[in-house]
């Protein structure tokens, strides 16, 4: 499901103009991005939390050539899935199709 699909679904369910649903959904993700930009966590009950992790510079390698590359310090978002969703995702998968089913598409 893409953001456009999500917008359409929400618009239909709540009888909102699509343009408005789009503004709202953009606002939700923009808000989270702004928070992370300021180094603040985002915590959505029942879903999970996002936080910023700071990585120091290190010497990496070009995987193709094996040449050493200096990797600059960086900030990356880290998502920790909430307990409820973690369990729901796992429970729903039990006894379902073959292992690769969810990865395949």
């Amino acid at each position: 499901m893409t953001k456009s699909d999500l917008i359409e679904l929400v618009a239909n369910k709540l009888h909102l103009p699509k343009g408005k649903a789009e503004l709202i959904i953009n606002c939700i993700f923009d808000s989270m991005e702004e928070s992370l930009k300021h180094g603040a966590r985002v915590e959505i009950r029942g879903f999970g939390s996002f936080e910023i992790r700071n990585y120091k510079s290190y010497e990496g390698r070009n995987p193709r050539t094996g040449d050493p590359v200096a990797v600059q310090p960086k900030r990356l978002p880290f998502f920790k899935v909430g307990k409820e969703l973690k369990e729901r995702v796992n429970e729903a998968g039990k006894g379902s199709a073959k292992p690769s089913a969810s990865v395949a598409q």
Partner: peptide, 23 residues
């Protein structure tokens, strides 16, 4: 692989309530 990572020292947290407020 996550070499030498450190957590941010900032303890402010945005919740669903603030997202609702923004919307």
């Amino acid at each position: 692989n996550t070499p030498n990572k450190t957590r941010t020292d900032d303890f402010r947290t945005m919740t669903k309530a603030e997202i609702v407020e923004n919307v």
